[in-house]
């Protein structure tokens, strides 16, 4: 019995240690964003301090962080919207029909995760230069489909499979077309799945650096992650401002990740694990 208690204690300690290692860096970032420059780099570090919002005020006033966040919001929104628009029907088709090539297509989607981004970045860059679309964020909406669509399809195939076909057959007998069944019966039933797929794909679209870095480099067109890098160019880095911006940039994805934490493993491995 004593052994059991010891094991429990060790187990608890191990979990707490891991929680500490994971939570400390994000805590340190938020803490740094609420400090002054001298507090931020004080040795020994200040564990209690008069919090100040100066870092945030400076960031809003001196850097284009607000417009960058706004760019990220609508680029991510539009990319996820487009991905859901074409991905949801595809997932429905794959989960409801048995047609030649179905398995191959299903597998073809996942191969997009292995893609080295520069392979498609080079042609996109050349195309954008030719069409005068460099710094036009719509090109990001398009290029992000390369990871948004596969993610949406894989997650939604799961969802549609959980809808009992009996419901749809009843609607078909009532004279609804296949497409009508999809829109009116199946889609409403998988609403939670749509939200999960949207958030997961959104995290990756939001976090992307390489495409935005090359395709939308101008001040007004930048997305949030690229603005984070722009601070590093100068002679003296305004660290409290940088940490305030870093907090603003990562808060939405952290909250999104927590909201869909149950589906993270499944989403990232494209359904390779249950």
């Amino acid at each position: 019995m004593a052994n059991e208690k010891l094991l429990k204690l060790l187990h608890g300690l191990a979990v707490v240690l891991i929680l500490g290692i994971i939570l400390f860096p994000p805590y340190w970032m938020v803490a740094a964003s609420l400090k002054t420059e001298s507090q931020l780099f004080a040795i020994p570090p200040h564990w209690l301090w008069d919090t100040t919002l100066q870092g945030y005020i400076d960031a809003f006033q001196q850097s284009p962080i607000l417009s960058a966040l706004w760019n990220s919001v609508w680029v991510t929104g539009a990319a996820v919207g487009l991905g859901l628009l074409v991905g949801a029907p595809a997932a429905y088709g794959i989960s409801r029909y048995n047609f030649p090539g179905r398995k191959q297509i299903w597998f073809w989607y996942v191969t997009h995760w292995m893609l080295v981004p520069v392979v498609i970045l080079i042609p996109f860059y050349l195309l954008a230069v030719n069409l005068g679309m460099i710094n036009n964020p719509w090109i990001l909406v398009l290029v992000y489909q390369v990871f948004v669509v596969p993610l949406v399809v894989w997650l939604m195939v799961d969802q549609f499979r959980s809808v009992p076909p009996v419901l749809e057959e009843a609607a078909l007998l009532d004279g609804l077309s296949r497409f009508g069944v999809f829109v009116r019966i199946s889609l409403p039933l998988v609403k939670p799945g749509i939200v999960v797929a949207g958030i997961l794909a959104g995290i990756f679209a939001w976090n992307n650096l390489i495409y935005a870095f090359i395709l939308t480099p101008a001040q007004g067109a930048r997305t949030a992650p690229t603005i984070a890098l722009s601070y590093l160019g100068g002679y003296k880095v305004p660290w409290t401002q940088v940490m305030a911006s870093a907090t603003l940039i990562s808060a939405p994805v952290i909250l999104g990740g927590i909201a869909v934490h149950k589906y993270m493993a499944r989403g990232l491995t494209m359904g390779a694990v249950k």
Binding site: I203, N207, L209, A228, I249, S250, G257, I258, M264
Partner: peptide
Amino acid sequence: IPIAITPA
């Protein structure tokens, strides 16, 4: 949280 945080 680590998985979701923006790499940059």
